[in-house]
């Protein structure tokens, strides 16, 4: 599947968090992962709606599982990146790397 539009910054962050979490990527865990790694507060609503949008674009898939009493009988929605999603992340990260080339002394990296 070909990506129709470039990914936004937060979309890339969310996709990366999903990749980091692997099999345990569900709403709350993804948000915690982003907050931990990015060291900034992230709105829960922004995470969920971004996950929905990425699934709509075909970059993520989801499945329902893991309902428990502590969740009032509601299932967890586990996300995983599709091949297109992985390709999209790669593209975005490589694009950033290319843009960074030659700016190392200035950026201190």
């Amino acid at each position: 599947m070909r990506l129709n539009a470039p990914l936004g910054e937060f979309e890339v962050v969310v996709l990366l968090a999903v990749l980091h979490l692997g099999e345990e990527a569900f709403g709350s865990a993804i948000r915690d992962e982003i907050q931990r790694r990015s060291r900034r507060r992230v709105s829960r609503g922004a995470v969920y709606i971004t996950l929905d949008r990425l699934e709509e674009k075909g970059l993520l898939t989801s499945r329902l599982a893991g309902a428990s009493d502590s969740r009032g009988g509601r299932p967890k929605r586990y996300f995983s990146a599709t091949a297109t999603g992985l390709k999209g992340v790669k593209y975005s990260v490589q694009m950033l790397a290319r843009m960074q080339e030659g700016l190392e002394p200035l950026l201190g990296t």
Binding site: F26, A67, G72, P75
Partner: peptide, 18 residues
């Protein structure tokens, strides 16, 4: 929320709230 999204979100909130 859209019907398909509501239940997992509510579940996440309940779990974290506890």
């Amino acid at each position: 929320l859209p019907p398909a999204a509501a239940a997992p979100v509510i579940g996440d909130l309940l779990e974290e709230h506890a």
